[in-house]
Computed example of a mutant assay.
Amino acid sequence: MKGIQMHPSRKSILVTGCLLLALSMSACTTVSEAAPKNSGADTSAAAPSITEIKVNQKARDLLPESIRSAGVLRVASDPTYAPFEYFDTDNKTIIGWDVDFSDAVAAALGLKAEHVAGTFDTILPGLASGKYDMALSAYSITPEREKIVDFVQYINGGSGVAVMAGNPQNITMDPTSMCGKKIAGQKGSIQSMELIPSFSKECTASGKAAIEVQNFPAQTEANLALTSGRVDGVVADSTSLAYQSKLAGNKFELAKGKDYDPAPAGLALAKDSGLKDAVTEATRDVLDSSFYRGISSKWGLPDSVLVTSDVLDKK
């Protein structure tokens, strides 16, 4: 969201398999339901042109020969998480910020990106087995994930809370405002597995009712539960929630307050793929280009989440 050629003991295979399962369960998206059937990209300004991304020969020379000769990068995403990745009106073409970004990385490498849809629980194992070359699906970079895959950072992001328009339940970014309420997250996401449960513990620790946590297979399903009145709030990536609100006709909005746990996010690569050095150099070019800010404006990403190529020099 590659191949890991392992020749370990049976015990280490089991451990690695468990790590892969844990990592995939922490992914941000699932493909069980398509995103809204209309594009919410900002078309009022001139679209950024991929032609401004030139081949970085240094990066291309670092590619494994098999990739360089194939001329293609197989890029996996879970297309239910607008504006990062979702299906266009034909329900076949994957569009979004991650798509544009990976197209630019591929162009800097002198390659073409081939976009493949996957479910959140199969993308990382697929990356490890060599089914894909790269995965972009709004991944937060976590220590657990870094144990099994390599990341190249391209953005920062945090979590927000979506509430019905007008906020009738008076929910804020203060977790105790959610005590006793029905709060949804996407099944397997960091929000559903870590954030919302931690909020509920704050509630009970302060003598208030626990949050009634409700998890849904797809982000779109969680949003639908909110707009239909089945839940009181949804916790997810704030940038994605803001964009999806527009696609839903502003039926819901973000609760006021600063994002929870802003953290780096990036594209994922299998550790033994031989791609990290090449992709890092290509990503450096993209982050330093006007194309990066152009696609961010196109897809409604705020300046506050954007990064510079300096992040690639940090260990």
Score class of each variant (00 low, 15 high):
Ser297Thr: 15
Ala282Pro: 02
Asp259Phe: 04
Ser198Met: 07
Phe120Glu: 03
Ile123Gln: 15
Glu221Thr: 14
Gly71Gln: 07
Gly180Ile: 07
Gly71Pro: 05
Asn215Arg: 07
Trp97His: 14
Ile183Tyr: 03
Glu221Tyr: 05
Gly118Gln: 14
Ala218Glu: 01
Ser192Cys: 10
Thr308Trp: 07
Ser290Glu: 14
Gly166Ser: 05
Val307Asn: 08
Asp90Phe: 13
Pro8Tyr: 14
Tyr292Met: 13
Asp103Thr: 09
Asp232Cys: 04
Ile50Tyr: 05
Trp299Gly: 12
Asp100Pro: 00
Asp232Gly: 03
Met6Pro: 07
Gln219Leu: 10
Asp103Tyr: 10
Thr51Cys: 05
Ser189Lys: 01
Asp98Tyr: 08
Asp237Gln: 03
Val75Lys: 00
Leu312Thr: 07
Pro302Met: 11
Lys131Glu: 08
Phe101Lys: 04
Ile67Gln: 00
Ser12His: 13
Ser200Met: 00
Asn223Ile: 02
Gly17Gln: 09
Lys246Gln: 11
Asn38Phe: 07
Tyr139Met: 07
Ala108Cys: 07
Pro197Cys: 02
Gln219Trp: 04
Ala34Val: 14
Thr119His: 12
Thr16Phe: 14
Ile211Ser: 00
Pro143Asp: 04
Lys258Ala: 11
Leu14Trp: 13
Lys315Gln: 15
Asp232Met: 02
Trp97Val: 11
Lys251Val: 10
Lys2Gly: 11
Phe101Asp: 03
Arg145Tyr: 09
Phe199Ser: 01
Met6Trp: 11
Arg293Met: 09
Gly266Gln: 06
Leu62Met: 12
Val55Ala: 06
Ser12Gln: 15
Leu267Gly: 05
Phe87Ser: 01
Ala165Gln: 14
Val149Lys: 00
Asp78Ala: 15
Asp174Thr: 02
Ser228Ile: 00
Gln153Arg: 10
Leu306His: 13
Ser309Arg: 09
Ala248His: 10
Ser69Lys: 15
Glu85Trp: 10
Met6Leu: 15
Arg68Lys: 15
Ala205Ile: 01
Leu269Val: 10
Ala59Glu: 04
Ser9Cys: 12
Leu254Ser: 00
Val231Trp: 05
Gln191Asn: 08
Val161Ala: 03
Ala113Asn: 03
